[in-house]
């Protein structure tokens, strides 16, 4: 029984981890390549979730809704980049933080104006709403398994794009030496816009998949944003590999902490003390982890090259 529970919690941690990874991938690319701190990344997650609900309702098909939402988030990302963020690449990180925080407020209110402040209804597609018996006594929701699979596929795809394609080569080159890439006649501005839109679409995908299990409401992006920053900082900024590792570590630590910290503490100290300290410590665990990682490795676990 305990082994089954442990496997189930591992799957839960993995599922949380890949959701974080989808968010972290875009954020870390934008940071690593454009040297840009984008707090508004959480807003793209929210936009994705809202567009998916709206488009699913409009088309009546879940799949069409998801595709439209992805395209829509990509467009919103591209427009945001062209209108507001493009001029910020050369600026101080502080200016970027201030401007993108402004964008968070802007998008949250915009969503509230269009769809209202109440949480929207969004449901699982019929085909994915069941359970699957992985091994005896371990039934796991199909939808959550699908999230794990999609997340891992995206990781694989990203690895392929970055290491094996011309676009990936440009991305890597742009990260380490932007003047050189421009000198070679590459349109660096277009490259940046593509990367940003791509990152926004990935955040949108995370939002689309989160919609049916979480509450679709204004401000939903900020709840996850801080955790995503923790992920990319632990993993090492600018590194896709680091983002994946960081996401899985944070997902696992957080899930396992919530599940097993209190009983584990109870065995060490008195059960009443564990009752009080367990939940508090579980909430702090990922921040504690980040502080320890940074104290030992100030550049994160997998620092990107060229920095």
């Amino acid at each position: 029984m305990n082994a089954i529970l442990f496997v189930e919690q591992t799957l839960n941690g993995l599922q949380f981890g890949v959701t974080l990874f989808l968010m972290a991938a875009g954020l870390t690319l934008v940071f690593g390549i454009m040297n840009m701190v984008n707090l508004a990344h959480g807003a793209m997650y929210m936009v994705g979730a809202y567009l998916a609900v709206a488009a699913t309702q409009w088309t009546g098909s879940y799949l069409a809704g998801v595709l439209l939402a992805l395209v829509g988030t990509l467009l919103v990302g591209v427009v945001t980049e062209v209108v507001a963020l493009r001029t910020l690449y050369e600026r101080d990180h502080l200016d970027q933080v201030l401007a993108t925080f402004g964008l968070i407020l802007f998008f949250n209110e915009l969503v509230a104006i269009i769809w209202g402040r109440a949480a929207l209804f969004s449901d699982l597609p019929q085909a994915l709403s069941g359970h699957i018996e992985l091994v005896t006594n371990l039934r796991y929701p199909v939808y959550r398994l699908m999230i794990i699979i999609v997340g891992l596929l995206v990781a694989l795809l990203l690895w392929y794009v970055v290491t094996r394609t011309r676009l990936g080569m440009l991305i890597r080159a742009g990260a380490s030496n932007r003047t050189m890439v421009s000198a070679l006649g590459i349109n660096i501005r277009l490259l940046y816009t593509i990367v940003f839109g791509f990152g926004a679409a990935l955040a949108g995908l995370a939002g689309v998949m989160a919609g049916p299990i979480y509450a679709v409401q204004p401000g939903m992006g900020e709840l996850i944003l801080i955790q995503v920053f923790v992920v990319i900082v632990i993993g090492g900024i600018g590194s896709i590999r680091g983002a994946l590792a960081g996401a899985i570590i944070v997902g696992m630590v957080d899930t396992m902490g919530r599940a097993f910290l209190k009983p584990a503490l109870g065995a060490l100290i008195s059960p009443t003390a564990a009752e009080a300290a367990g939940p508090a410590l579980a909430s702090m665990l990922i921040y504690l982890l980040m502080a320890v990682v940074l104290a030992l490795r100030p550049e994160g676990l997998f620092p990107a090259r060229g920095h």
């Binding site: 507001a84 001029t87 910020l88 600026r91 200016d95 201030l98 401007a99 925080f101 402004g102 964008l103 968070i104 407020l105 802007f106 998008f107 949250n108 209110e109 915009l110 104006i113």
Partner: peptide
């Protein structure tokens, strides 16, 4: 919404 726009404009 307006505070947000204000922050963006100040930076730009």
């Amino acid at each position: 919404l307006f505070i947000g726009l204000f922050l963006v404009l100040v930076v730009l």
